[in-house]
């Protein structure tokens, strides 16, 4: 039997990039995957198609996870369609351009920039968790995986607003992990390094990549597929006794 057969997995922001790779990874292990997206219906449908091709079940739901009503609508649809939810991967985030050359300096940042990122990372996770946890509690089990970044440990480039929001998400996750342990629900984070190619990292210059590679024990930059295994691990029974952890997936760049 495949690892995620009869399991339902929601991956937020999974029409493209890392999210799409994660969705496909679950599907290959037999999961029923909900491909959540905001705008790009075409990409979402493509991800759905490739999930099904890999032997999973999948469908797409449009919902802006920073909107409570959207999240509620999405969860209702999930409950109707599949009855329950086993895994949530909070992968969606506010669009952000990772360009070391053009990044905003602290003096240029407004509180609004911070707020946007905090909303994109923490508020969205908050809404999704509020809706998903009651369903998980009913089953006395569940796994929540929140996507953060290795920059929280080592801000190679100070993307202030982005990294601050992701740091907050780790704190959020740890607190949740403690409280939800009593309900059999685990909460963990995955902290990738620079992942290429994705829409967000497309503008990263070769020079930067080389700089990162030079410091990375495993001598390359992560691809979306590199993130999949650790996410599946934290979502499966293989990690049934792991909660509140942040797993760095960056070729060993950060060791903590």
């Amino acid at each position: 039997m495949k690892k995620f057969e009869n399991k339902t997995v929601l991956v937020t922001g999974s029409s493209r990039g890392i999210g799409a790779a994660i969705a496909r990874g679950f599907a290959a292990e037999g999961a029923t995957v909900i491909v959540n997206y905001v705008q790009n219906q075409g990409a979402a449908e493509e991800t759905v198609a490739s999930c099904i091709e890999r032997g999973g079940e999948a469908w797409a739901i449009q919902a802006d996870v920073t909107s409570e009503s959207d999240v509620i609508r999405m969860m209702e649809e999930i409950e109707l369609e599949v009855g329950n939810i086993d895994v949530v991967v909070n992968n969606a985030f506010k669009p952000y351009v990772f360009n070391p050359d053009t990044r905003k300096m602290f003096s240029q940042l407004t509180w609004g920039d911070y707020q946007d990122q905090i909303d994109g990372a923490v508020k969205s996770t908050y809404y999704v968790c509020q809706q998903a946890i009651p369903l998980m509690k009913k089953q006395t089990k569940g796994s929540i995986v929140n996507m953060v970044t290795n920059l929280v440990e080592r801000p190679l480039i100070p993307y202030h607003d982005y990294t601050t929001a992701k740091s907050a998400l780790i704190g959020f996750s740890r607190n949740l992990a403690v409280e939800l342990g009593a309900f059999g629900i685990r909460v963990n984070c995955i902290a990738p390094g620079l992942v290429y190619p994705t829409d967000a990292s497309r503008q990263t210059r070769e020079e930067i990549k080389e700089m990162i590679i030079a410091q990375t024990p495993l001598r390359r930059i992560a691809q979306p597929e590199d993130i999949v295994g650790p996410v599946l691990f934290l979502s499966s029974e293989w990690s049934q006794f792991v909660t509140g952890q942040t797993l760095y997936v960056d070729g060993g760049l950060v060791m903590s």
Partner: peptide, 11 residues
Amino acid sequence: FCQQKGKTIRT
């Protein structure tokens, strides 16, 4: 009853 068991038209 079906939803509780994760058995729906889809699954």
